[in-house]
Amino acid sequence: MISFRDASYTYSIKTPFEKLAVKNVSFDLNEGEIVGIIGHTGSGKSTLIQMMDALLLPTSGEVYINCTSVQDKKANLKQLRANIGMVFQYPEVQIFEETIFDEVAFGPKNQGISGEELEQRVSSACAVVGLNSGDYKKSPLALSGGQKRKVAIASVLSMKPKVLILDEPTAGLDPRARNSLLKFLKEYNKKFGVSIVMVSHSMEEIAEIADRVLVLNKGEIVMDDATNNVFARREFLKSVGLDIPEISTMMNMLGVTDCWTVSDAILRLKSSMTVANGKRAEVVDAKEGGVGSGV
């Protein structure tokens, strides 16, 4: 879907304020996968995802969307961007229409869709994020923060993107909204085969949702691997200013060193807890690192 080949981006190029934000990045985003992007503040995550949507064009190297180079003079960027849905950090600031319906319809309208299909697009996008059809005539600016974010996400989904990019979508949401958003993203990915790219500072969220993780440091991809393999390397992640999810740390404290993978850790912890509920003695065992053999 999206391919980076040695792509770099420099802000304010050829001025005294030049700043290299993304450096020689190469990777491929495959269809239907969920990719998490993690990195320290200022590591170039936001620049990288903006390059994925051709909002920033690489200052050197190549970026391909649907096998078309974004630097090709003949490329229609508007068409390329239609494949990619971009949910910025705090996306509710982009809301401008008078009604929820118009807001969600803005994207498809720009794609030239009208009439019945437009209505169908809006209602299906609103339905997946859980907005009632009775609210279509309400002003989106009068909604609560969490509702506004739903409208903003629906207004991206209504364009039926093949890739959905989200920049810290859970920032500022309460735990319930956060959980339902993550659950929704997982289901949406499974149901429609849409690739999802998610930037987050929460290792838990990434561990929960991503199949694959890109680790950015100072504008470079320093790791590109399956989620479990990435979180298995705690020391390395610490060296680039990150950490592993709490659950992995917990397992580490319990002395379970042979299971590093997150899902594994959750499974083992759960089972050891059921055992612990039955027999207290087993917990002592677990502390000594015997969980693996005990279950």
């Binding site: 903006q50 949507d53 909002l55 508007k78 961007r81 239609a82 990619i84 849905g85 971009m86 910025f88 996306p91 600031v93 982009q94 803005f106 994207g107 309208k109 720009n110 794609q111 207004s155 991206v156 364009m159």
Partner: peptide, 16 residues
């Protein structure tokens, strides 16, 4: 900064 972000957000939604 904010104008830049909003322009990008609307561009990604197909605004021209």
């Amino acid at each position: 900064d904010e104008a830049d972000k909003i322009i990008k957000a609307q561009t990604s939604r197909g605004a021209d």
